[in-house]
Design a protein around this nucleic acid. Structure first.
Length: 284
DNA sequence: AACTGAATCAACCGCATTCTA
DNA sequence: ATAGAATGCGGTTGATTCAGT
């Protein structure tokens, strides 16, 4: 049995809004504001519930609403923010002036989710082809990082595609500190992806650090508990060879790994995904 | 032209959270 | 401190439009 809708129960109108109703609502809000949504329809003379009026105003009638198709930039922003925030549509909408949570949610479900799925499928195909060729001498001698260019191509719609020369500069830029390889990811502009953390933490290019599975998770952070620009990537444990990507560990100096709260974990996890990784959180 | 399935998007529902008396 | 009201939010629905046959 379905619970009767509140509007119907009270003899109020439901369904699509008419232009007349829109006019009444807009002119009432322009004159008196919307301090009390519950009382508003009665004051305005509308046969609607307050909830319906609020929704109509916030999703359609608000003067600052931007109509029309989403730009590529807006879509990229949604994808990046969704990686960080998940289905927190209102939080995502807050970063996109003129767009509503409802609109963003719709775009996500109708366009972006499909696109990401396609990207993921492309990635899997590429990875399968790279692992199935493992008998070739060149492949067996190569570093796990060799998959990065093809991985990047698979993710192309999500991020700018580096040229082959850019990729060679990527690997050329690797350095070794304490027997750990650090590879710069030059093509990622993480300051755009995570602007709320300020410019300071992105002042250095992000690094990917390769290490072995046998090592305990490194924990490395800056003094203000902000994320450092290091990710730790396993490179040499054969038992993990079937894994599609190198596992990435959180690098957070001086901070108790266990004490990282859920939101922080989300941040790190999303940062890892931005770096091209793919893993369940439990793998950490 | 008619039909059908897919895509789109406005609107609703109900739970969670915040506010207020 | 607490209960009820108000509001916010995310998931879902269903009417409409579009594209393919």
């Amino acid at each position: 049995m379905v619970r009767a809708p509140c509007c119907e129960k009270m003899g109020l109108k439901r369904g699509p809004w008419t232009p007349e109703e829109d006019k009444i609502l807009v002119s009432h809000i322009e004159k008196k504001g919307h301090e009390n949504w519950r009382a508003l329809p009665r004051q305005a003379g509308l046969l609607r519930c307050g909830k319906s009026c609020r929704l109509r105003w916030t999703n359609y009638l608000r003067p600052d609403i931007k109509r029309g198709n989403f730009s590529r930039e807006e879509e990229e922003t949604i994808i990046q923010l969704h990686e960080m925030l998940g289905n927190r549509w209102s939080a995502i909408a807050a970063k996109l002036p003129g767009r509503t949570d409802n609109e963003i949610k719709n775009v996500w479900h109708t366009h972006l989710k499909k696109r990401l799925k396609q990207n993921q499928a492309n990635t899997e195909i590429i990875l399968q082809s790279t692992t199935s060729d493992s008998k070739s001498p060149r492949q067996s001698e190569s570093s796990d990082l060799d998959i990065l260019p093809s991985l990047h191509q698979a993710c192309a719609p999500m991020s700018p595609q580096p040229s082959s020369s850019e990729f060679s500069s990527l690997t050329d830029a690797s350095v070794t500190v304490n027997n750990i390889s650090h590879i710069k990811i030059d093509d990622m502009d993480l300051s755009e992806s995570f602007p709320e953390f300020g410019e300071s933490i992105w002042s250095e290019p992000p690094l990917v650090k390769t290490t072995s599975w046998s090592e305990p998770p490194l924990v490395e952070t800056t003094s203000n508990n902000m994320p450092s620009n290091l990710l730790t990537v396993s490179a040499d444990d054969q038992s993990q060879a079937q894994s599609q990507f190198n596992p990435v560990e959180i690098v957070d100096l001086g901070c108790n790994y266990d004490s990282i709260i859920d939101d922080d974990m989300d941040f790190w996890y999303n940062l890892f995904i931005r770096a091209g990784g793919s893993a369940e959180l439990s793998e950490f």
